[in-house]
Write a protein that binds this DNA or RNA. Sequence first.
DNA 1: CCGACAACCTGACGGC
DNA 2: TGCCGTCAGGTTGTCG
Length: 270
Amino acid sequence: MPELPEVETTVSGLRKVLEGRRLTGVMPRRADLRRAIPEDLGQRLTGARVTGLGRRAKYGLIETDRGDTLVFHLGMSGRWRIDPAELGKHDHLVLETDDGHRLSLNDPRRFGSLDLLRTDAIAEWPPFVAIGPEPLGGTVTGKLLKERFAGRSAAVKLLLLDQRIVAGLGNIYVCEALFRAQIDPRKAAGKVSRKKLDALAAAIPAVLLDAIAAGGSSLRDFAAPDGELGYFLKSFDVYAREGEPCGCGDKVKRILQGGRSTFYCSACQR
DNA sequence: CCGACAACCTGACGGC
DNA sequence: TGCCGTCAGGTTGTCG
């Protein structure tokens, strides 16, 4: 579930427990997730103090006073647990703090990742070099979308999922933003009108901020890291609502694009 | 550049 | 109870 709002919520939850704390234990419990976990991760982080937390696109950042930043990605099924009663087979990294808290990165499907980067070189990390502007940074405007979509015949839905165009959007919030902007997800990106792109540029941060306000909602198995229920509290306009009525009275449709479900209202979105 | 598809991996759910 | 097919928030790569 982890799209931008869920990562943002996760980072906020981690900040409460980690900021300013010294890491007294750092225990990777397997060698790899989606890719290898750095072998020296435990050694480099043990004893370090956490100086700050942040987020870039769907990546969470844990910065330390040793010049290293732990970069995590939650993939499809990752979440952080704070003070879990017991560790299970999907708890892949455990952190212990000097004030007695224990955190675990739990990721059943292991599509997530863990990397340890030098903080001063983080901008040159290849995944970050390729990634597009932050949708909450105020720079994603109709004008920018017009430029990035120019000449592109791919469906606008698919280009919005491309992290190089805009960072942090995933399947849920792309569907929701397109609904709010009343854009047909199948439409060629380069043929969406400037007026619609202005509406889209406004809808993207609106949808994301609503989700953050709702506690990083999403789907079934997402919970905020402090254990508060973060899922199913938010209802979507179209996502996962196939066959249900849209506000206009028509039924929400589900189609496949790029092998993934798109939910939309063919009456409202044109 | 594009669309289609597969791969990575586990778990939940529905149908039988 | 179990077996089987389908689906799920993401990313990366190949093929034609």
